[in-house]
Design a protein around this nucleic acid. Structure first.
Lengths: 193, 193
DNA sequence: CCAATTCTTGACTGCTCGTTCCAGAAAGAG
DNA sequence: CTCTTTCTGGAACGAGCAGTCAAGAATTGG
């Protein structure tokens, strides 16, 4: 046997995710990645393959991390309405508090690459399905618990919430006006009021 | 006096817009632009300046063209609800019919550059304001004509519609499932029903 | 005609890109 | 210790990048 890796794969991948999240695929250079990841160039290639492969792995990692967060907020027992309000309020705060305006890595990937990269399209598409499912389950629970009587088509509303979430995040990249974003959230959540 | 230009400035700018719209700023090379615009490299630089300047001009042109389309649909006399339905149905059709999945150039610019380019941020931001205004005027008209009695906060709804529009278009880049997109539209428009 | 201007063409700058190669240091196994 | 494997660092690769230059052709106005 031989020497073992001196860095933690997940940690380094997380750093790579940050770079791609901030700059996107095209604008991130391998030199940027080497610098931020803190490992040797060769180790990078040995461990993660080429730039595109690394990007996909970073995207997968993002999905895991953010997917879990969403799950935790929406599956927690209690009012679904409150959970949704908390979720979207949190999105607004995060957006306003990020000087880099990174937005959502999954949304960024959709915008930049989904149209011309099958692998990215597959990931963003399945992420929609997964996120939609989390919304859907929460809506069903809300209905069962008698909280969301006005929601007639939970599947459609779940899809709507995904779209609304992405629209909100995108909008926050252009404007930092809190009132504007809060207006969007207010109207968006009115469909589950 | 001297020789006059042999190409139409607006026509070539339109071609440049198509390139940036399809590929984004980073992924579009000057060689791509030279090829598609059909003019000489030197003429390109003489007429439009460097790549970034050309990009901004292409973005401005897109805003002009698409802004006018939106205006025409929403300012036309008649039912505002119908106009909104037509607008969003059209967006879905366009999205499903575009094999390149270009989405909205303004949205793409927001996603790719607004976070790190002031000039792009300014344009996308003012585009939000302008589009919001068109929605707002249509909503006001709908209220005045007694069609949109349930709309209490037209300003907020206008902002919501912009966000919803962008969310829908982004989503269409990831999934080509018509039902999904139509679900989104259905719920989105329920706030003005 | 002439002079001025701008077109077109193609080669040509540096520079940065993603990726690979190589040589040596480091560390586990026998 | 020795062997083997992997990590590390830096140099190097060819390709493509944005942008420039120079020279000739073309077209205008006087």
């Amino acid at each position: 046997m031989a020497r073992q890796k001196e860095f933690d794969r997940d940690e380094v991948l997380h750093k790579a995710m940050e770079v791609f999240w901030s700059r996107g695929f095209e604008a991130a250079s391998m030199q940027d990645l080497v610098n931020h990841m803190g490992i040797n160039r060769q180790s990078l290639y040995d461990t993660f393959g080429d730039k595109h492969t690394l990007y996909l792995q970073a995207l997968d990692r993002y999905r895991e991390v953010e997917g879990r967060k969403l799950f935790e907020v929406l599956e927690r027992p209690g009012s679904v309405k409150k959970a949704l309000r908390k979720l979207f309020a949190g999105v607004v705060e995060t957006a306003l508090g990020d000087p880099e305006r990174r937005g959502c890595f999954m949304g960024n990937a959709t915008s930049e690459l989904a149209g011309r990269c099958k692998a990215t399209a597959a990931r963003t598409c399945s992420n929609i399905a997964a996120t939609e499912e989390v919304f859907y389950r929460a809506l069903l629970r809300g209905k069962k618990e008698g909280e969301l009587k006005r929601v007639r088509h939970p599947r459609a509303v779940a899809r709507f919430l995904y779209s609304g979430l992405q629209g909100l995040i995108l909008m926050a990249k252009a404007t930092q006006d809190r009132k504007t974003l809060e207006d969007v959230v207010k109207v968006m959540l009115s469909v589950v009021e």
